[in-house]
Nucleic acid binder design. Structure first.
Lengths: 341, 341
DNA sequence: TTGTACGCGTTATCAC
DNA sequence: GTGATAACGCGTACAA
């Protein structure tokens, strides 16, 4: 079933059917309605391959989640939420969504090829792409529309991205701990090759300085966004006797709490803990985590919307969008009025 | 840059280039090598739209995760792992992967249309599609190759699917609790419109019966695959004083443990708990959950492989693949030799 | 072994 | 407002 068939059944020419489908104004209301009727009756959809061949557009956006660690070690539903947000926005705009997930290292070159040689998509979203990943340079040199989720560490002035104000958000978290009377506040960082992690570290330092507290290097432990990493970091911190932890991610915080428990340290009594993200594990942790909520689905949705706007020429790159964060108080910080988890 | 350009640069005809790309044997080794060189030098990739137009194949598989609850209430990384497995297998076979996520109810009709009218993919994988979902009938009546992840409740004899033997797995979990001396073993079910949940319930009953223990309806509480639901179910169970819980999912188990803690019940001392899936939250729970691990990534990968085999005619539908499960002993069951979480 | 010519289903550019 | 007709880039009989 193709345009020709519909045309015959409707008693018009192929071009007219095409015009009807593409909302071309110069077609009489009468024929338009008639043709639509036939299309609906026959349950016809134009062949996207043929369409793409001539329009040079596929109406597909790609989303790339590139690194091994993201998929296998992050251990939370961050990426599910990113995908949910992007998917919904794409569908609302009649775009389909192609997914590339980075996996084993051996596959990395193949992924890079697959993404960069690809003519299947009108534009690309990346999530948590680090500037040292081979795809980074490639995607920049391509002239496909590109939107990054999470600010890139390099060339961020030339790249469109969607993120949150991580510095302010980290200040928020740290100030909260300060306001609870904590004074030896430690920070477990995320992967510092990611701008988010760097910004959260900066926000932590800012808050201490502004409160007149010392920034003690011994209380800053670099880690990655994983539970094991948070666990290890906490064990390093134990002898330094912090009274609070600001962790750069919820999964890190969960690992830290586990190490604290094993050492007989009570959370929040002996140690107040604040995480970041508000992904699934935050509310499910014991005790439920106080954390900085960032709108993860919102980031996915905003990235998709921005990408589509770029594709359709409604806006010009680069564009930077920062979404709002919010402190969610549960039990791990020991504040008086915790919300229900 | 197209076949014609490459042909000119290589001093051959367009068809020869096409033959080289498609590994047609009747082309001399010499020209073949020469043409490949030009292709590599020019970094050429054939236009997939043009190719799809003539071959009627897109080399794209679709994956559908349809229901609202899956995305928003499941709160674990189950679907991330499904996607990771499917994605990796797809790429290994030079297929791209299109993702449809079901979201808000208003969008359901749009999703159904988008999936079923679609000519963008060579075949479809569904994850956790229930038989009462509008997509179920549609996908069956389409003649696109189809593979379901998780056995469908109806027509499972006509549908290809990948799953685990949930009955045996549930027996495994329940037997473990019995072997630890527990006698009032309760079961919190998953969403019973999903076959997995029904099978786990059946396995639970089987194990009790085989051990000569009574099946007490008061110790079976229906729930959904969510933490809140597990929490509510546990509160119903409290007055009935179970000494063990087999939960149909890890997230359910986490909710149940939380309710138990609030009631002053110690896990595992007063209450042994076993979950199902071994998703992220299991190891991160407090205490770390003993659970039945199912190979979630493996299910995604197996589904993609099977779908591609169906598309390429290597096997005939319907095919049923059951993967192995494994009991992972951590702390929530109180067994003597827990593995490291 | 290589080249020629046609068709895939659509949109765009002309005429009318 | 409508209808021919030429692209779009590729695969593939068929001819050479």
């Amino acid at each position: 079933m193709n345009l020709e068939d519909i045309a015959r059944k409707a008693g018009v020419s192929r071009s007219t059917v095409s015009r009807v489908i593409n909302d071309d104004p110069k077609v009489s209301a009468k024929t338009r309605e008639h043709v639509w009727e036939v299309i609906r009756r026959e349950n016809f959809t134009p062949n996207p391959a043929a369409r793409a061949l001539v329009t040079r557009r596929t109406e597909i956006i790609g989303i790339v989640i590139p690194t091994v660690e993201n998929i296998f070690f992050t251990d939370n539903n961050y990426f599910t939420q990113i995908l949910a947000g992007a998917s919904q926005m794409a569908r609302q705009n009649d775009y389909a969504m192609l997914l590339w997930l980075g996996e084993l290292t051996e596959d990395e070159e193949r992924l890079r090829q697959s993404v960069s040689n690809n003519r299947l998509v009108d534009g690309v979203i990346t999530a948590s792409l680090t500037h040292d990943h081979p795809l980074f340079k490639r995607l920049l040199s391509l002239n496909t529309p590109l939107v990054m989720i999470d600010r890139p560490l390099e060339h961020d002035d030339k790249i469109s991205y969607v993120s949150v104000d991580n510095i302010r958000a980290a200040e928020l978290a740290t100030n909260h701990l300060i306001s609870l009377g904590r004074r030896r506040i430690a920070h477990i960082t995320g992967n510092l090759s990611i701008a988010d992690a760097q910004d959260r570290l900066r926000g932590y330092k800012n808050a201490l300085t502004q409160a007149g507290l010392p920034v003690d290097p011994d209380l800053i432990v670099p880690a990655f966004f994983s539970r094991q990493s948070g666990y290890d970091a906490m064990r390093q911190l134990l002898p330094r006797k912090p009274d609070a932890i600001f962790a750069a991610g919820d999964t890190i915080a969960v690992g830290a709490v586990q190490a604290a428990h094993e050492a007989g340290i009570r959370v929040p009594h002996d140690l107040a803990v604040v995480g970041f993200d508000d992904v699934d594990v935050a509310a499910q942790a014991f005790p439920p985590l106080t954390t900085v909520r960032q709108p993860v689905q919102g980031k996915g949705a905003a990235a998709a919307k921005l990408l589509i706007d770029l594709i359709q020429g409604r806006v010009q790159a680069p564009q930077h969008i920062l979404l709002e964060t919010e402190l969610v108080i549960r039990q791990s910080c020991g504040a008086k009025n915790p919300l229900k988890g």
